[in-house]
Design a protein around this nucleic acid. Structure first.
Length: 260
DNA sequence: ATGCCTCTTAGGAAGAGA
């Protein structure tokens, strides 16, 4: 069984690539983030023609997440139980869960944080705590379970191209990394993919400054799986080929093959 | 070639992303 997670930076703008990649890669379940579409404008029909059904959480602005599956889609939960809103506003569409055949998956888009000390940074940490609390039961269950998505955190200094360039910035701070440690303490482990080229499995490269050709990237799209999930992993890799060319997202898909 | 940012809303310019 092949599953994947991909921040597509607009599912509408990425639709031709998305459909082609699903067919080419043979992915059974894909977790999507940053849809940037409304629930009504999500491209459910072209996906259905390829044999996929979708659980979508979107509001027509930024954010938006989905689980797209051709192996079943049950027990859908839209939104993160107990998730905070930003500055007291309504919760944003940053989480959706579904059971797809033998595995249970969450697709999450963790808030960016913007700057250390910003209200959005506090929101990011609150959001991660809500995620930790909400993931406990599925993590402890016997069924393979994983939280996949754009965490907007590089777990270690090895996961950014130049730690010095990120000093004092979000994505690498101790509180953010401690939030990841909190998830691991539940019983989730970081399923680290292999890179298809070079030595580090970056998943994101800024559009600017030739970051991709120079391989100045970050690993911020993560797969955190419980023990039954981690044991079932046969292979995991970053499909950096999908970052190439015109009309690419700034993130590449992370692919995980499971023996289930 | 992997190539100098892209997407959205809105109706021109600006915010968000990380």
């Amino acid at each position: 069984m092949r599953i994947a997670t991909w921040n597509v930076n607009s599912v509408t703008a990425r639709l031709p690539r998305l459909l082609a990649w699903l067919e080419k890669s043979g992915t059974d379940v894909l977790c999507l983030q940053e849809l940037k579409c409304s629930a009504e404008s999500f491209p459910a029909e072209p996906l259905r023609e390829l044999g996929y059904e979708a659980a979508v959480n979107a509001d027509g602005r930024w954010n938006g997440v989905a689980v797209v599956s051709r192996v079943g889609l049950d027990e859908v939960v839209t939104g993160l139980p107990g998730q905070p809103g930003y500055l007291g506003e309504a919760p944003e569409p940053r989480a959706v869960a579904a059971t797809c055949g033998p595995v249970r998956l969450w697709s999450v888009y963790v808030p960016n944080g913007r700057e250390v000390g910003h209200d959005h940074y506090a929101y990011k940490l609150e959001w991660l705590e809500a995620l930790r609390a909400a993931a406990a039961d599925d993590t402890a269950a016997a069924r393979p379970f994983a939280v996949l998505g754009d965490y907007n955190i590089a777990p270690t200094d090895e996961d950014v191209f130049d730690p010095a360039a990120f000093a004092g910035l979000t994505h690498v701070t101790a509180p953010e990394r401690e939030a990841l440690a909190g998830l691991r303490a539940l019983g989730l482990s970081d399923v680290v993919p292999r890179p298809l080229k070079y030595d580090r499995p970056y998943t994101y490269w800024d559009y600017r400054e030739l970051r991709f050709p120079h391989n100045k990237g970050m690993r911020i799209d993560l797969v955190y799986g419980n023990e039954p999930f981690a044991t079932a992993v046969e292979d995991a890799y970053v499909d950096r080929e999908e970052r190439k060319g015109k009309g690419a997202s700034d993130h590449a898909p992370v692919v995980v093959d499971l023996e289930v």
